[in-house]
Simulated assay, not measured.
Amino acid sequence: MSGRVGDLSPKQEETLKLFREKVSDILPQIEDDDHNLLRWLRARSFNLEKAESMLRNHVNFCKEWNIEYIRNEWKAPEVLEKYMIGGLFGEDKEGRPVYYEAYGRIDCKGIIYSSTQADIMKNELRTCEAILQRFREQTEKHGRRIDDLTMILDLDQVGLGHLWMPFLNVYFEVLNQFEANYPETLKRCIVINAPSMVSVGYNLFKPFLSVDTRSKVKFCGGNYQSKLLEFINPDQLPKHYGGTAVHDGDPKCSAKIRSGGKVPKSYYLKEQHLSGSSNLKKVTVGYGAKLELPFEVTEPSSGLRWEFQTEKDDIGFGVYRKETSPDGKSKLVEVVATSRFSCHMVPESGVMECDQVGTYVAVFDNSFSWVKSKKLHYSVDILPPDTQSTSDP
């Protein structure tokens, strides 16, 4: 049984029923139909407890990142609009949307030097939400449920520069969030123009992909056109990739599929100062250590705002809330997941809404480094409910 609507075993039917009951409190916050609920169950092999945890984490993630705002209102910085890669174009023979990404054409250093990690993540989340919208459009167009896609990953021009770790760390975080929050949306990924060094890069990416996702990745060399035409009709495949489709006379359909390119240095943020530089504190976070900063929030819907930069190397950052367990013990609950930021290149900043009163702890984490201390410049403060903005975390 595939685990999809109309193809469920009796045990899967029962699990779906129990799953709906267990997550009934959050159903108003998601797309409430069996097709969507089954995505989360399939992603966890119909393990009820794991699927519930995954879905609840997703709801919290959407709130943390204000996905509705990103989907409907957020505007990406100009440099990301012009020089990031990827885009949707056409459909495969089964009506699925097709997403193209020419990884070899991205300027890894240019993107990192000119963008914050938060903006890069929001840009990719906006793309994921656009894909979900395309699923809905294709479902309406074809009169049957369509909820996964075909991806074409073009590795032409990929070199060692595309394995630059500051960029890969951001890319890995994007992959992590895609796996955790957009499960079961990939039908197949066809990798074309794969160079001989691709095994090195793929081995770096593999740990961030589920076993199921890895099974959907197929590699082709330079003679890939016939393989693509097995899945995509010529009029839906850009002429550049062996089809007949053009857009505004462009065989690459660049208006739909962003093709990257060298980022002009005029976009670089590396020399910019933090906006709160007059209030910055400077500390050294020792190797293998963490800096924990507690803040008391006395009014619901207050904001916790941060900005920071290191002088050298990356550092982790996350936010926790103190809670008291039934046995009276205090524990820290993660509310903004800890991520590593290459903030020695570009300052990082953000804001979150504190929907509960209590003690929040901002944590700068250098525990992963056993040899390097980090010189950190930071500002973290509380914004009253009537002044803080939660629309653009």
Score class of each variant (00 low, 15 high):
I257Y: 06
K82Q: 09
E129C: 13
E101I: 11
S226P: 01
V285F: 02
F19D: 03
R39T: 03
L274F: 08
Q157R: 15
R136F: 06
S277Y: 15
L175E: 06
L41M: 01
T298S: 10
G276R: 15
D365F: 03
P234C: 04
M165R: 09
K82M: 07
F295I: 00
L229V: 05
A362C: 07
N60H: 12
Y287L: 10
L132M: 14
D147M: 10
S53D: 12
L209C: 03
F308S: 02
H344M: 11
F205V: 15
E124L: 13
R71K: 12
Y267F: 15
K216V: 04
A102D: 05
I315D: 03
V297D: 00
D248M: 09
V336L: 09
M54F: 02
I67T: 07
Q225V: 11
L149Y: 11
M121F: 14
T387D: 14
F364H: 02
D147R: 11
V23D: 07
Y99G: 02
T150M: 15
P238V: 00
Y202A: 04
P234S: 08
L229D: 05
N193Q: 07
K75M: 01
T127P: 06
D107S: 01
G3W: 01
T244S: 11
P347K: 15
L293K: 07
T244C: 04
K374P: 00
N193V: 05
K206Y: 04
E21F: 03
A130R: 09
Y69R: 11
T359M: 03
T310E: 02
A118K: 15
E296M: 14
A51D: 04
N203W: 06
Q309C: 08
A118E: 13
S210L: 02
K329A: 12
G318V: 05
I85R: 08
I106S: 09
L80W: 04
V158R: 06
I131Q: 02
P294G: 08
S259C: 14
K322V: 13
C128A: 15
S275L: 09
P195Q: 05
D314S: 15
S199A: 10
L88R: 07
N123Y: 08
Y83V: 01
P326G: 03
T139D: 11
L332P: 00
R145V: 10
V191C: 06
R4A: 09
G159D: 13
F231S: 11
K50D: 09
K312L: 13
F295R: 01
D365L: 04
S339K: 15
V336G: 00
I315E: 03
G95F: 11
L88C: 01
K206S: 05
Q133C: 07
P166Q: 11
Y83F: 05
T359V: 10
G303P: 06
H142N: 13
D313C: 09
C354A: 06
M165C: 03
R145K: 15
W74P: 02
S278C: 13
R188S: 14
Y287D: 12
R134Q: 14
T150A: 12
V98P: 00
S349F: 08
V200P: 02
L209N: 04
S259D: 13
A255W: 10
S2M: 10
E64D: 12
